[in-house]
Computed example of a mutant assay.
Amino acid sequence: MAEDLNRIDYIELNVANIEISKSFYGKAFGWSFTDYGPDYCEFSDGRLKGGFTTTAQVSAKGGPLIILFAAELEACQQKVETAGGTISNPIFSFPGGRRFHFNDPDGYEWAVWSDR
C-alpha cells in the first residue's frame, strides 16, 4: 500500500554493550526490549521499534539527529541524567516549542522536544 511507503520503520544503533544500552533507555524512557542472542536486542518505545547490535563498531558522530517527544521536558531531562545520559545542550526555546540535546552512554547525540 502506498501509505506504508516512505516512513521510518526501524532504527538500528551499534552499541558497545547491549545491557548498558538497555539499562539507559529503559530508565530514561521506559522502553521495552526483546533479546535475540548475545549480539542483538530489539527495543520498542511503544510506537517505533529498533535494535541495538554489537556486530559493528560504534560510530556515534555525524549521523542524523533523532528527536523524541516528551510532554514534560524538565522531568524527561532529569530522567536522562539519572539514567546516565550527558546533557550536551540544556533546554532551549525554538519556534514551536522547547528542547534539549543529550548523549547516551555510547556517545550518540539525541534530542527531546516539547510543544510546552
Rank of each mutant, 00 (worst) to 15 (best):
residue 104 D to H: 00
residue 107 G to T: 10
residue 96 G to H: 02
residue 114 S to R: 11
residue 5 L to R: 01
residue 23 S to A: 15
residue 8 I to W: 01
residue 32 S to H: 09
residue 7 R to D: 04
residue 6 N to D: 11
residue 108 Y to P: 00
residue 37 G to R: 04
residue 41 C to N: 00
residue 83 A to N: 00
residue 35 D to Y: 08
residue 111 A to W: 05
residue 91 I to W: 00
residue 39 D to L: 10
residue 114 S to Q: 01
residue 91 I to D: 00
residue 116 R to N: 13
residue 5 L to W: 07
residue 6 N to Q: 09
residue 43 F to T: 00
residue 50 G to I: 07
residue 82 T to C: 07
residue 6 N to R: 11
residue 43 F to L: 10
residue 60 A to V: 05
residue 111 A to P: 03
residue 88 S to D: 04
residue 99 R to M: 09
residue 71 A to W: 11
residue 67 I to S: 10
residue 29 F to L: 15
residue 95 P to C: 04
residue 103 N to E: 14
residue 94 F to C: 03
residue 15 V to N: 03
residue 103 N to H: 12
residue 48 L to C: 02
residue 52 F to E: 01
residue 33 F to Y: 14
residue 51 G to A: 12
residue 69 F to N: 11
residue 58 V to L: 13
residue 113 W to D: 08
residue 16 A to C: 11
residue 11 I to K: 06
residue 88 S to C: 04
residue 82 T to H: 10
residue 26 G to H: 03
residue 51 G to I: 00
residue 13 L to D: 04
residue 59 S to L: 09
residue 70 A to Y: 02
residue 9 D to E: 07
residue 71 A to D: 08
residue 79 K to C: 12
residue 25 Y to M: 03
residue 30 G to N: 01
residue 69 F to E: 04
residue 20 I to A: 09
residue 66 I to M: 09
residue 6 N to A: 15
residue 87 I to C: 08
residue 107 G to R: 01
residue 116 R to H: 14
residue 89 N to V: 15
residue 2 A to F: 13
residue 52 F to C: 04
residue 60 A to Y: 08
residue 74 E to M: 08
residue 84 G to T: 05
residue 86 T to M: 10
residue 38 P to V: 06
residue 61 K to P: 04
residue 2 A to S: 14
residue 4 D to F: 13
residue 80 V to C: 00
residue 85 G to R: 04
residue 21 S to C: 07
residue 20 I to L: 12
residue 47 R to Q: 08
residue 109 E to A: 12
residue 81 E to S: 14
residue 5 L to H: 06
residue 2 A to G: 10
residue 25 Y to F: 11
residue 53 T to F: 09
residue 90 P to H: 07
residue 30 G to L: 05
residue 106 D to F: 03
residue 5 L to G: 04
residue 91 I to E: 02
residue 33 F to T: 10
residue 42 E to Y: 12
residue 42 E to D: 10
residue 93 S to V: 14
residue 78 Q to P: 06
residue 45 D to K: 05
residue 49 K to G: 12
residue 5 L to F: 08
residue 1 M to L: 15
residue 30 G to Y: 09
residue 87 I to E: 03
